[in-house]
């Protein structure tokens, strides 16, 4: 509470030495490399699936893992090209609290739905049957990896992989084909009115990414003390849950450090807090957070979540005001 009031007092004070992180540095050093990696690893994945669609194939699973890694590292950059035609959701329909992904896939397989034959038309299926989380069911779920004829399963794997590649490529093409310029040329009637508004968009991405990792990647398996839910962890079937938290924190740390570049004190505090969260994650030593059910090890996962929340508070109350974003009691609430 004191923190909020303090922050509220801060925003009323004149901003000393206005911070001026570089938008072009964030585009060239953070955004473009991530979407480049996502597009190229996704194309690799699609090609590998063409060569070998057996769900247990080492090559296919490796290509899938590399592309999924690239997505996690870019998954907080939710503005512009990722939002056109709901592309980000088409790559990542998760959390799936009501099991729409396995249900949609099971229906496609049971019906031998011919829509799976073609990457171009596959974008018409339920968004829950697309993307990395759907492909995880096809490659790793004990039931769905065996369901249906092997021919249909193979077609579905190739099509989902091809659809991922098409979406990832479209995002990268939009970034290089004009959206980077949108960020670099704010103006009175442009998408962004000022460079400050561009930086505020980046700050929102950082804050939302931290919240997603806390609420969903860590919060879902934690459940409640009386009812831990290890099977709600992200991508536990492919053993990615803890690794996804690590990849997301590393990527968010990179963005945070670029945004905090002109405020050494905040930058140092954020470095310390990110390192603390990553250290605590390493100490969990459990790739799928199965240990949420045991009180001792559960505590270790809870402290990771608290460490991520600490970073988010610092971003909102310390970094935000330097970029012209009010950190008020109501403006942070969102309801």
């Amino acid at each position: 509470m004191k923190r909020y009031l303090f922050a509220a007092a801060l925003i009323c004070a004149p901003v000393a030495a206005a911070a001026d992180p570089s938008v072009s540095d964030i585009i060239d050093g953070h955004i473009l490399p991530r979407f480049d990696a996502l597009a190229s690893t996704s194309q690799d994945l699609a090609q590998t699936a063409q060569q070998d669609c057996d769900p247990t194939s080492t090559d296919l699973r490796a290509a899938y893992g590399a592309a999924f890694d690239a997505w996690i590292s870019a998954s907080h950059l939710r503005f512009g090209p990722t939002e056109v035609d709901d592309r980000a959701f088409a790559l990542a329909f998760w959390p799936d609290s009501r099991g729409a992904t396995p249900r949609s896939l099971a229906t496609l397989i049971a019906d031998q739905d011919p829509i799976a034959a073609n990457v171009e038309t596959y974008s018409d299926v339920s968004i829950a049957a697309r993307g990395f989380y759907a492909l995880e069911f096809l490659l790793y779920d004990a039931t769905l990896m065996q369901e249906g004829t092997s021919d249909y399963h193979c077609t579905l794997v190739r099509t989902v992989a091809g659809d991922i590649a098409a979406t990832a490529t479209a995002i990268y093409d939009d970034w290089t084909g004009g959206h980077a310029d949108v960020l670099l040329s704010p103006g009175p009637t442009a998408t962004y009115r000022s460079e400050e508004e561009v930086l505020q968009e980046m700050l929102r991405a950082l804050t939302a990414g931290l919240q997603f990792t806390s609420d969903s990647r860590l919060g879902r398996p934690l459940g409640t003390f009386d009812r831990p839910r290890p099977k709600r962890a992200e991508a536990w079937r492919s053993g990615r849950s803890a690794s996804d938290v690590k990849l997301s924190l590393e990527s968010l740390q990179d963005l945070a450090s670029r945004l905090a570049v002109t405020d050494p004190q905040v930058a140092e505090q954020l470095t310390r807090e990110f390192n603390d969260a990553l250290d605590k994650l390493e100490a969990v030593n459990d790739p799928v957070f199965a240990s949420v059910a045991k009180p001792q090890s559960r505590l270790k996962i809870e402290v990771v979540q608290q460490a991520v929340d600490t970073i988010r508070t610092t971003v909102q109350t310390e970094l935000g005001p330097t970029l012209g974003v009010a950190a008020g009691f109501n403006s942070l609430d969102g309801d």
Partner: peptide
């Protein structure tokens, strides 16, 4: 939204 995922929005496309 579902309390199992905090305040994460689940259905923005639809």
């Amino acid at each position: 939204t579902h309390p199992d995922s905090g305040r994460t929005t689940l259905n923005i496309p639809t």
